Amino acid sequence: MSAEMPGPPDAAEQPPLVRLLQEFSLEANRYVDSAGGRNDMHRTDLNALAVIMQHTARNQIVTPGVLRKELHLSSPATTALIDRLHHSGHVVRERLGTDRRQVQLRMTPKAYRDGGAMFLPLARHMGAAMAQFTPEELEIATRFMTSMIDATVKAGQEAAQQTAPAPPAPQ
């Protein structure tokens, strides 16, 4: 007796905005893969630089532990990532505090230049697309996207707390 595999969900069941958000996420990931690949950078490298940039903008210190936690990496994977970014000239390690044991990660001017060059085409096209909307429409879109990000973060936290389902028992 074979279990029936569920089919694809009925497109009518999913709101069009959800489908568009999924498509946007997919296209954004494709762009990151393409831009990073042309510059010999992994998606994780670019995600790490984004995390460092966000924390820096908030005047927060980024340590290897922060990077490990935010990117859900093991300690060895985090070390390899930081080594790659350091060797490529995108990140420097600086010792902090009086005992100088804590390491802070900082992006270099080269990282900002390379990132700007990689994402300039995307920024140009997005800027042109945004120019088609009024400030009021962009305000609504901003509120919507902020809510979608918050919802995604909450869903991710929820998923991280769930245990994996047990495999079906052999018959």
Rank of each mutant, 00 (worst) to 15 (best):
residue 31 Y to R: 12
residue 83 D to L: 02
residue 55 H to F: 15
residue 77 A to T: 05
residue 170 P to T: 01
residue 106 R to L: 08
residue 93 R to G: 07
residue 165 P to T: 02
residue 26 L to D: 09
residue 154 K to P: 03
residue 3 A to S: 10
residue 42 H to F: 12
residue 32 V to K: 12
residue 86 H to I: 03
residue 5 M to V: 13
residue 80 A to W: 11
residue 19 R to N: 07
residue 122 L to S: 08
residue 82 I to H: 05
residue 104 Q to T: 00
residue 113 R to G: 06
residue 80 A to Q: 14
residue 105 L to Q: 03
residue 151 A to L: 14
residue 99 D to L: 11
residue 70 E to I: 02
residue 166 A to Q: 14
residue 102 Q to H: 08
residue 94 E to Y: 04
residue 131 A to H: 10
residue 106 R to V: 03
residue 4 E to K: 09
residue 26 L to T: 11
residue 63 T to C: 06
residue 92 V to C: 08
residue 20 L to P: 00
residue 97 G to L: 04
residue 162 Q to N: 10
residue 51 V to H: 08
residue 12 A to C: 04
residue 113 R to T: 10
residue 171 Q to M: 08
residue 34 S to V: 12
residue 33 D to N: 13
residue 80 A to R: 15
residue 73 L to A: 04
residue 47 N to V: 04
residue 95 R to I: 07
residue 121 P to H: 04
residue 34 S to R: 15
residue 78 T to S: 09
residue 129 A to Y: 14
residue 87 H to M: 07
residue 150 D to P: 01
residue 36 G to Y: 09
residue 117 A to I: 08
residue 118 M to S: 03
residue 159 A to V: 12
residue 164 A to Q: 13
residue 90 H to K: 14
residue 169 A to Q: 14
residue 98 T to H: 12
residue 123 A to K: 15
residue 162 Q to T: 07
residue 151 A to H: 13
residue 16 P to G: 01
residue 126 M to N: 06
residue 131 A to N: 09
residue 44 T to D: 15
residue 64 P to I: 02
residue 166 A to G: 09
residue 91 V to M: 06
residue 139 E to N: 11
residue 122 L to W: 00
residue 12 A to W: 03
residue 99 D to C: 06
residue 26 L to K: 06
residue 28 A to Y: 09
residue 167 P to T: 00
residue 53 M to A: 15
residue 44 T to M: 12
residue 28 A to R: 08
residue 99 D to F: 10
residue 57 A to P: 04
residue 37 G to I: 12
residue 120 L to T: 12
residue 97 G to Q: 08
residue 58 R to M: 08
residue 160 A to P: 13
residue 103 V to K: 10
residue 8 P to R: 10
residue 72 H to C: 05
residue 74 S to A: 04
residue 45 D to V: 01
residue 153 V to W: 02
residue 5 M to P: 00
residue 14 Q to H: 05
residue 127 G to D: 04
residue 4 E to L: 11
residue 141 A to G: 13
residue 116 G to E: 01
residue 120 L to F: 14
residue 128 A to M: 07
residue 25 S to C: 07
residue 17 L to Q: 06
residue 164 A to V: 09
residue 16 P to Y: 00
residue 74 S to W: 05
residue 34 S to A: 14
residue 162 Q to A: 14
residue 91 V to E: 07
residue 136 E to V: 12
residue 162 Q to I: 04
residue 10 D to M: 07
residue 167 P to I: 00
residue 139 E to M: 10
residue 68 R to W: 00
residue 68 R to A: 04
residue 37 G to D: 06
residue 16 P to W: 01
residue 81 L to W: 09
residue 123 A to T: 13
residue 105 L to M: 06
residue 87 H to R: 14
residue 36 G to I: 10
residue 130 M to D: 08
residue 93 R to F: 02
residue 21 L to R: 03
residue 26 L to G: 05
residue 152 T to P: 07
residue 151 A to N: 09
residue 135 P to N: 11
residue 165 P to K: 03
residue 117 A to N: 10
residue 169 A to T: 15
residue 155 A to T: 02
residue 110 K to L: 05
residue 106 R to A: 03
residue 87 H to Y: 11
residue 39 N to L: 06
residue 46 L to P: 06
residue 145 M to L: 14
residue 91 V to Y: 01
residue 156 G to A: 12
residue 85 L to M: 05
residue 2 S to Q: 07
residue 21 L to D: 02
residue 61 I to G: 02
residue 25 S to L: 03
